[in-house]
């Protein structure tokens, strides 16, 4: 059986909020190392991969592999009943029909209990290869969100060009064009505000802004975001959490 206690329900709330517009039904795969999720969006252009390590839970117990087939809209409805600071306990049997969620406030004088019906989801099995990227850019997640939102007003797609000292986001649309150039810089007082670039070779790729704007819903999970780029390889957008991550992969536009 699964029993997992999360100190802050807000972590799961933010994770679900970040991915629910990309995928609707998906399996939460639970085993002794933690809870993971991998799913492609319906159009097979983007993929989300989420991991919550057992270290993020206290206690965490999962005797055998359990797949929890969950409709994320249903989970969102139930999680609305939890405060961010509530303690959240997830429980499921070995071959579960439902997932049990208990929310307790920090004073421990209120507890709420919900059960969500589970579904059988036949999901593609995906292997994510280890990849050496040409460029890796770390920037404030709020900055990335603002850039994607601003450029999406002008165009459906953005070109990301990484060079040794800067990363440029540019777009062109019917009303005109726009670009944002971020120079590599280190903010010693506020490291989360820094922009860093690791470059093997310069790279320039074009992506759909609709998806990137969607990924930015994960900004609440982390003050920084990491973009990894290589030619003809899906872009990796990673939000790290204290004990886990949410990663999005997005295919570049390659003239189809």
């Amino acid at each position: 059986m699964l029993e997992a206690r999360l100190e802050q329900a807000g972590v799961l709330k933010k994770v679900v909020e970040a991915i629910k517009d990309l995928v609707q039904d998906c399996n939460f795969d639970c085993n002794d190392s933690g809870i993971a999720l991998q799913a492609m969006d319906n159009s097979h252009v983007a993929l989300v991969s989420m991991s919550l390590s057992h270290e993020g839970f206290s206690p965490y117990r999962c005797d055998r592999n359990i797949a929890l087939g969950i409709n994320l809209n249903s989970l969102t409805k139930v999680l609305r009943a939890a405060q961010n600071e509530d303690i959240l306990t997830l429980k499921a049997a070995d071959s579960p029909d439902s997932l049990n969620l208990v929310f307790e406030n920090t004073e421990r004088d209120r507890s709420s209990e919900y059960d969500i019906k589970l579904m059988d989801i036949d999901q593609e099995h995906l292997g994510i290869p280890d990849t050496d990227y040409s460029a890796t850019v770390v920037l404030p997640s709020a900055e990335f969100q603002r850039i994607c939102r601003d450029l999406s007003q002008l165009s459906e797609s953005v070109t990301i060009e990484a060079s040794k000292s800067s990363v440029k986001f540019s777009c062109s649309g019917d009303i005109g064009n726009g670009s944002v150039n971020l120079r590599q810089h280190q903010d010693l007082e506020k490291p989360d505000q820094s922009t860093s670039i690791e470059l093997v070779e310069p790279v320039s790729l074009t992506f759909s802004l609709k998806y990137l704007v969607n990924f930015c819903k994960a900004s609440a999970l982390s003050p920084t975001v990491k973009l990894s780029l290589s030619t003809d390889v899906p872009l990796l957008v990673e939000y790290k959490m204290e004990a886990g991550y949410v990663r999005f992969y997005l295919a570049p536009k390659i003239g189809d």
């Binding site: 252009v45 290869p129 390889v233 189809d256």
Partner: peptide, 14 residues
Amino acid sequence: YKTQHLMIVFFDVL
């Protein structure tokens, strides 16, 4: 559908 093909090849969909 080059994009979908790229995703399927990259992620080794079984």
